[in-house]
């Protein structure tokens, strides 16, 4: 049986890049609030992970979560396989505080 949860995971398997909630909700026709819970489920199961460094633009900046210059990027997720392209934190960049 193919569950909707499985379909969600399949979408990530077919995608070459991280996806946001809005992008998948469009594809699946599921309410955003429901999808949010589903994504969290896979995150808890260790199958998906939230893509870091996207909250704000400067991935090196230690203040990136509270950066004011960058738009609030939607949270995005990707398959939790392979190595994560983690970036070292650095002092704040010029644009963030």
């Amino acid at each position: 049986m193919t569950t909707t949860l499985r379909q969600v995971l399949n979408i990530f398997e077919e995608s070459a890049h991280p996806l946001s909630l809005a992008e998948i909700a469009r594809d699946l026709g599921v309410e955003a609030g429901v999808l949010e819970g589903m994504l969290q489920y896979w995150v808890h199961r260790g199958r998906l992970r939230e893509v870091s460094g996207d909250a704000a633009i400067c991935p090196m900046c230690s203040k990136r979560e509270s950066c004011a210059i960058m738009p609030d990027m939607p949270r995005r997720y990707e398959l939790a396989t392979g190595s994560r392209n983690e970036l070292p934190l650095s002092p704040n960049c010029l644009c963030c505080k």
Binding site: I57, C58, P59, M60, C93, C96
Partner: peptide
Amino acid sequence: VPAIYATRT
């Protein structure tokens, strides 16, 4: 400089 690093997103 931060702009160059920012391309990582």
